[in-house]
C-alpha cells in the first residue's frame, strides 16, 4: 500500500503524538543532569525538582512583600487583559467585517483603510498607547486590540464574501430584507469563522500581551518572566513558559469545543484541526 494511504492505528496515533513531547523532556533531562553533575549550582538547565519547588512556592506560598500568591495573581492579571482585548477585538471585527461583507458601500469605506491599518507593526504603536493611555491596563488591552483586530476584520469580511451568491439570491426570492439577510444568513455563516479568527488571533494576542507586560507592568505572566530574567531564574521562566503554553492550548481547545457545540452544521463535512 502506498504511504499516503497508510493510516496509523489508534494506539499508534497516540504513541506518535506523545513521542515528540517525551523526546523533548528526555533531551532536557539528560542535558540538565550533565550540567548539574559538573556544577551543582548551574542555573541554565535546572532540574525538574528545582522547577517544581519554585513553582509550588509561587503557587502556594504568599509573597513576602505583598502576601499575594504570585502565580495566580499573575495568571488572573494576564487572562483579564487577554480576554478584554480579544472580546473588544471580536465585537469590532464582527460589526465591521459583517458590514464590509454585506454592504458594498461599507466595503468601499473600510477596505483600503483596514488593509493599510493592518500593515502597521503593532509593537510600534505601543509607545503611542503608553503615552496616550498611560501605563495602566488600557494601553496593554489596546495593544492586543490593535494587533488582532485588522486581521480578524479581514477574515470575517472574506468569509462573508465567500457565502455562495446563490444563497443570498435565494433569500431575496423568499422575501427577505437586507437586514433579515444579514441576521439570518450572513451572521450565522460568519459566527463559526469568528471562532476560527479568535483561535488564530490567540497567538498574536499572547505575543502583544507578553510584550506590553514586559515593558511596563507590575504583575502578569509576561512581567514575571522578564523580571526574573535578570537573575537568570530559569527555574521560574521555564515552568512559566510551559504554563502560558498550557493556558493557550486550553483556550484553543475550548473555542473548538464551543464551535462544535454551537455550530454543529458547520462541522458536518471535512476534517478540522
Amino acid at each position: 500500500m502506498k504511504l499516503i494511504n497508510r493510516k496509523p492505528s489508534r494506539r499508534l496515533t497516540i504513541f506518535l503524538g506523545l513521542l515528540p513531547f517525551a523526546a523533548l523532556l528526555a533531551t532536557y533531562l539528560i542535558a540538565s543532569d550533565m550540567r548539574l553533575a559538573v556544577n551543582p549550582s548551574d542555573k541554565l538547565l535546572p532540574s525538574f525538582q528545582t522547577m517544581a519547588d519554585t513553582m509550588s512556592r509561587m503557587a502556594f506560598e504568599p509573597d513576602k512583600r505583598n502576601g499575594d500568591y504570585l502565580l495566580w495573581t499573575d495568571t488572573a492579571a494576564s487572562l483579564y487583559r487577554l480576554f478584554a482585548g480579544l472580546a473588544i477585538s471580536a465585537v469590532l471585527a464582527l460589526v465591521i467585517g459583517l458590514a464590509m461583507g454585506v454592504l458594498p458601500v461599507a466595503r468601499a469605506f473600510f477596505a483600503q483603510f483596514t488593509a493599510a491599518f493592518s500593515l502597521i507593526p503593532p509593537i510600534t504603536v505601543l509607545p503611542i498607547l503608553f503615552i496616550t493611555l498611560g501605563l495602566g491596563e488600557a494601553a496593554k488591552i489596546g495593544l492586543i486590540i490593535v494587533g488582532t483586530t485588522p486581521a480578524m476584520i479581514r477574515t470575517l469580511a472574506q468569509s462573508a464574501l465567500d457565502i455562495p451568491r446563490e444563497l443570498v439570491i435565494k433569500a431575496e426570492t423568499l422575501g427577505a430584507s437586507s437586514w433579515q439577510i444579514t441576521t439570518r444568513l450572513y451572521l450565522p455563516h460568519i459566527l463559526p469563522n469568528l471562532v476560527v479568527a479568535l483561535r488564530l488571533g490567540l497567538v498574536p494576542a499572547w505575543i502583544f500581551l507578553i510584550s506590553a507586560e514586559a515593558i511596563a507592568s507590575t504583575e502578569g505572566l509576561g512581567y514575571r518572566i522578564f523580571l526574573v530574567r535578570r537573575y537568570m531564574a530559569m527555574d521560574l521562566i521555564l515552568p512559566y513558559v510551559a504554563w502560558i503554553t498550557l493556558l493557550a492550548f486550553v483556550l484553543d481547545r475550548l473555542l473548538l469545543i464551543l464551535s462544535k457545540r454551537a455550530f454543529s452544521w458547520n462541522h458536518l463535512e471535512g476534517d478540522s484541526l
Binding site: A171, L174, L185
Partner: peptide
C-alpha cells in the same frame, strides 16, 4: 423578488438550517 422562485443546481438550501427551518424561513421573513 418573491414573484420568481429559483432552484439552483447547488447551494440552493441554507446549510445552517435544518429541513423544517429551511421551509418556515419565508414565513419568518
Amino acid at each position: 423578488t418573491p414573484d420568481r422562485g429559483i432552484v439552483f443546481q447547488r447551494y440552493s438550501v441554507f446549510p445552517h438550517l435544518t429541513v423544517w427551518q429551511n421551509l418556515i424561513l419565508a414565513k419568518e421573513f
